[in-house]
């Protein structure tokens, strides 16, 4: 793992590519990418070791030149090497693509249903629904690109 701090090595960036069933959706350079894997968050800086990992449902944070972007990514595979991060996922949504009302509705439905029903299988799928709606809501709040604070 390269221990360079982001910002110092400005010429070294990660090439981030996100591919979905609708084509190559997102190509961008980034200083740092933080993704949600099935076993926790994972941060990637340039010069990372070659790793392939399984993504969970969560927020993909892309930090570039002091600007943070957030995307909702649900599952998929990430392939990481020293210069690039390739993400293959069925769904990757930008804040402006998210139907906020629908996400809120899904959240309410899922929350009330979880309270009422006790079947384990049903709860499992509803939890997924709730998780997704929460991710969508958080990402959609993030349309304005603002400064991010360094939390190293």
């Amino acid at each position: 793992m390269d221990m360079q701090q982001p910002g110092i090595m400005n010429d070294k960036k990660i090439d981030l590519t996100i591919t979905t069933p609708r084509g190559v959706k997102f190509v961008e350079k980034a200083d740092r990418v933080i993704m949600r894997c099935i076993d926790g968050d994972m941060g990637v800086l340039p010069g990372h070791a070659r790793v392939s990992t399984v993504l969970g449902d969560g927020i993909l944070r892309i930090l570039n030149n002091g600007i943070e972007k957030k995307l909702a990514v649900f599952g998929g595979i990430a392939e990481i090497d020293d210069k690039s991060v390739k993400i293959f996922s069925t769904i990757a949504q930008r804040p402006e693509e998210i139907d906020r009302e629908r996400a809120e509705r899904d959240r309410q439905e899922a929350e009330t249903a979880i309270r009422e029903e006790s079947e384990e299988v049903r709860i499992h799928s509803l939890q997924a629904k709730l998780r997704r709606s929460l991710v969508r809501i958080e990402v959609s709040l993030h349309i304005d690109e603002d400064e991010y604070t360094e939390e190293l």
Partner: peptide, 16 residues
């Protein structure tokens, strides 16, 4: 190939 698979190779295949 120095590619590593996380959490482990079998879990990766199961998802892939």
């Amino acid at each position: 190939d120095d590619m590593k698979y996380e959490p482990d190779i079998h879990a990766f295949i199961d998802h892939l």
